[in-house]
Amino acid sequence: MSQLSDIPVTVTVLQAGADAAPHGRALLMELENQLRDLVEQGRESSIDLRSLPLSPGDLAFLEQHLGKGEVTAEVSALGPSTVQETAIHGVWWVRHYNSNDEVMAEFLEVTQCPDIIRAHPADVRDSLEDLRARLVELE
């Protein structure tokens, strides 16, 4: 299947002042609430960016105001996932792609560490078996 980037069309996102990002400020305020909950109560939360009627300028606004942080991670599980900590510590921009590199889901996660990064205990247990099996093979 051809990708959007294969089509020779240039898309220009118009930047018509504050009108271009009508929801940007509201999203930042929501993040402020969620981050406060994380600091005070340790409660993790997230925003599903696909569930909101965002204008083309909103995402650009968010990217600009959240900035890029220290951690960038890529996960390969049923297609790639990218995890980018924003310049606001504890706010992570998580994008899940399918194996065609199409975005399936996009979240802003407010947490110490996104779940997608952590190894699942059951997987760790299975891997322990696996590693032991490999050691047996070496003998």
Partner: peptide, 23 residues
């Protein structure tokens, strides 16, 4: 051969697709 991590991602995407809260 799908890992639990991948399954979790699958579920997160499914929740998003079903218009359910991420939690």
């Amino acid at each position: 051969g799908v890992s639990r991590r991948a399954f979790l991602k699958f579920c997160a995407a499914t929740a998003s697709m079903m218009a359910l809260p991420p939690g």
